[in-house]
């Protein structure tokens, strides 16, 4: 039963969602919108599960004094502080806790933590990519054979696409880069997209029909 019920639910709702795409009638739309509401509700539980998992793992690391156990303390502090700031707001001349309305969003500490900690940290991590791309390009773009040479030339052309210092060959490079993006790149990407799309349809059908059961916990 433990496996049969989820399989049955997946089958019923999967078939309904396929069916709903072809049935525009109001009754089908009503059920569809009802299901959408339920998925939001279930999604919130997933969010709560994520928070609970984070707390559980961090507390376990702190209790066991595993290496680097100071970091989970910072993690938990950040989590609870943002929750506190997000629920605290100023209205009618006094501070208070507001759980249902939006006062917390304009809490200065909430905004400061987001604007001056969260945004710079995330931007910095993304900026690391520039350096990794440089070192990966230096390692990988070697003309070892014909295919590698083609890759090298294409990469150089696309990188020089918007370089303004190329003089008369600038427009030629730009047009070549455009051709590369709009013809061979497009053809290859389209083929991969079609293949991935068909793979997704096949996997989805397997899940709906109960052939693919990996998500239930046994490979």
């Amino acid at each position: 039963m433990r496996r049969q019920i989820p399989l049955m639910l997946v089958f019923i709702f999967g078939i309904f969602m396929i069916f709903q795409y072809f049935v525009p009638h109001e009754s089908s739309e009503w059920i569809y919108e009802f299901l959408l509401d339920w998925i939001y509700i279930i999604g919130i539980f997933a969010l709560a599960l994520g928070i609970w998992s984070l707390i559980r793992v961090s507390v376990a690391k702190i209790k066991a004094h595993k290496s680097g156990w100071g970091y989970p303390i910072i993690t938990l502090a950040g989590l609870f502080l943002m929750i506190l700031f997000g629920f605290t707001g100023y209205r009618d001349g006094s501070w208070g806790f507001y759980f249902m309305t939006a006062e917390g969003l304009s809490n200065p500490m909430f905004r400061h933590f987001f604007d001056y900690i969260m945004i710079p940290i995330q931007s910095t991590m993304f900026a690391l990519l520039a350096f990794f791309i440089a070192s990966a390009a230096y390692r990988a773009f070697r003309a070892r054979n014909i295919m590698a040479s083609l890759l090298l030339v294409a990469a150089l052309v696309v990188m020089l696409r918007f370089n303004p210092y190329l003089g008369p060959i600038g427009p030629v490079i730009a047009d070549t880069a455009s051709w590369l993006l709009n013809v061979p790149n497009l053809a290859a990407k389209r083929a991969i997209i079609i293949g991935v799309g068909l793979g997704m349809v096949a996997t989805s059908l397997k899940i709906i029909l109960g052939i693919e059961r990996g998500y239930l916990g046994k490979g």
């Binding site: 997933a46 994520g50 984070l54 990996g214 239930l216 046994k218």
Partner: peptide
């Protein structure tokens, strides 16, 4: 990365 993925992965590895 995802707690639900973690739960499923734990089951899979345990079964394996």
């Amino acid at each position: 990365y995802d707690p639900i993925v973690m739960t499923v992965a734990q089951e899979i590895v345990k079964s394996a």
